[in-house]
């Protein structure tokens, strides 16, 4: 009983902390505002056109198999060779915003024959996908190169207005 209650409280807390659960993409031209998760940081303005150019129209660099381009990862090819284009290629359609919610954990533990058992959450895949590539291709890699820290973030990281008083040298800086 108490476990169930705890789970509910936990879920409520996660929802309360997380940003508004509206559509993850606010399409404006071909620049997406990735802001569904913004909390400690502002959202990211993502120039889709520029990335299409940078990847030379190879959607699979970012989209696995979901955009119609066949996957290249040998591990994915095993099952997804002929998967074709998905109804929606959006990251958030498969990678949930709250991977640690009681419902999602329950689904993970209790779905028989679930192959993608440790599917990373939306925040993780954004960072893994973008940052992983940026590190290799020389794109921006500092936290604040892509999104500015919010007031809540400054409080969380004890920085900016909330930096420890006595000991100087606490200027926030971007990170690789």
């Amino acid at each position: 009983m108490s476990l169930k209650k705890g789970k509910t409280i936990g879920l409520a807390a996660i929802i309360a902390i997380a940003a508004p659960l509206s559509l993850p993409f606010t399409v404006s031209g071909e620049v997406f505002e990735l802001n569904s998760l913004s909390s400690l940081y502002e959202g990211v303005s993502f120039d889709h056109d520029m990335h299409i150019e940078a990847t030379e129209d190879n959607c699979t660099v970012c989209h696995h198999h979901t955009a119609g381009t066949p996957p290249e990862e040998p591990d994915c090819v095993r099952c997804h060779r002929n998967s074709g284009e998905a109804d929606s290629p959006k990251c958030s359609d498969c990678h949930v915003a709250e991977p640690f919610s009681a419902a999602n954990l329950d689904r993970q533990y209790n779905t028989p024959n679930l192959y993608h058992t440790a599917k990373p959450g939306l925040k993780a895949v954004y960072h893994l996908n973008c940052l992983g590539c940026h590190q290799e291709t020389g794109g921006p890699t500092g936290c604040q190169d892509c999104h500015t820290m919010t007031d809540k973030g400054e409080k969380f990281y004890n920085t900016g207005h909330y930096a420890p008083k006595e000991k100087p040298g606490g200027q926030s800086s971007g990170h690789h």
């Binding site: 990281y157 004890n158 420890p164």
Partner: peptide
């Protein structure tokens, strides 16, 4: 307790 240095201080 409050840290000696901010958490985004990578030094």
């Amino acid at each position: 307790p409050e840290p000696d240095r901010p958490f985004d201080d990578y030094s």
